[in-house]
């Protein structure tokens, strides 16, 4: 059995008569020790999907379907059961570390919280392990920095602190929700390497949410591409460039800037993202898709097209190859760095 099993998950938000259909039926699994990348544009429902695992969605969220984590039926578990999971079995890293740390308390005291909340250690032991963890995530002179306040750290350092906090209780799963979006490229590379190393060393599973295909390809084993609250394609990171099938993913890869070509106008996907205030009728990509047919008025299911490769597209299911992948395989290697 896999560590995370999400089946047919639907999430909508009801706020003052305004309904937002954020997630429209998603299947996602994470095996032990696996890194799953979830890629999609803003509003595609990626953050909402992963936040449902520790059940931290706002009160206005209505969930359907099944979310199992480590054998626990998350959507029906008791509040106490969920609290026992958070911070202990699931660690989370967020986009903006400064906002996610309490400004009135030292980073050391916050770092120890998962251990103290779950009574995994006494104060002295927690402090010792906190210092050890700070050292591991690359904070120099941890003993001196332990009693610093968040505003005394740089963004990259704070992200390291947040990683240390998420990992201190050695969780089975760490959810990284766009952890490098607010960092510059150099620091981003350091943080990615750190996350990957820690994930390997601690033998954790990881869900890595990002809108950056290149980053997802670097870090993940498997990539889920989301659009309009659905998964449009799931494939191995290694197959991303050569074997992708969905028109949306093709468009995304096309619009990556490249270093090995003269600078021109970047290709883009015409149209606007899905209006999430309407329930999905048909393929979410319909309006922007250059190859849609009449079939596309009904929502396509994820169909297996290869080993651990599934696509939700009627054209692909009907054996049509959307774009010629060999044409750009060579060129793309310039924009996606080597795997870590």
């Amino acid at each position: 059995m896999d560590l995370v099993e999400i089946e047919g998950l639907r999430i909508r938000f009801d706020a003052d008569g305004q309904v937002v259909y954020a997630v429209n039926g998603i299947d996602l699994t994470v095996a032990e020790g696996q890194v799953v990348g979830v890629v999609g544009e803003s509003g595609s429902g990626k953050s909402v999907t992963v936040t449902s695992i520790p059940r931290l969605l706002p009160k206005t969220a209505r969930c359907e379907g099944r979310v199992r984590f480590d054998g626990i039926d998350v959507l029906n578990a008791s509040a106490a059961q969920m609290r026992a999971i958070r911070g202990r079995s699931v660690g989370m890293i967020f986009q903006n570390p400064l906002a996610y740390l309490n400004p009135t308390r030292t980073i050391g005291s916050q770092l120890m919280e998962p251990l103290l909340f779950h009574h995994l250690a006494g104060y002295q032991e927690a402090r010792r392990r906190g210092l050890e963890m700070l050292e591991r995530v690359g904070i120099q002179n941890p003993a001196a920095r332990f009693d610093n306040y968040p505003f005394e750290f740089s963004g990259g350092m704070l992200q390291r602190v947040l990683i240390a906090t998420a990992l201190i209780a050695a969780p089975k799963l760490v959810i990284a929700d766009e952890p490098t979006t607010s960092l510059d490229v150099t620091v981003q590379a350091q943080i990615l390497r750190l996350l990957k190393t820690m994930q390997r060393d601690l033998k954790m599973s990881m869900i890595f949410v990002t809108h950056d295909l290149a980053v997802a390809a670097q870090v993940s084993d498997t990539i889920y591409v989301m659009y309009g609250g659905t998964v449009v394609e799931q494939l191995n990171a290694a197959d991303l460039i050569r074997a992708h099938r969905h028109p949306y993913l093709a468009g995304l890869l096309d619009s990556l800037p490249r270093l090995d070509r003269p600078v021109g106008r970047l290709p883009f996907i015409p149209g606007l993202p899905v209006d999430t205030r309407q329930p999905l009728a048909g393929c979410p990509f319909f309006d922007r898709c250059g190859v849609h047919t009449d079939d596309c008025h009904t929502l396509p299911a994820l169909t297996t097209v290869g080993p651990s490769h599934r696509v939700a597209c009627w054209r692909v299911a009907g054996e049509l190859v959307v774009t010629d992948p060999t044409a750009k395989a060579g060129g793309l290697s310039g924009c996606i760095p080597e795997s870590l």
Binding site: L56, G87, R88, M92, N102, F117
Partner: peptide, 8 residues
Amino acid sequence: EHARQMGA
């Protein structure tokens, strides 16, 4: 949110 996430 972070506090809740850590199990507070």
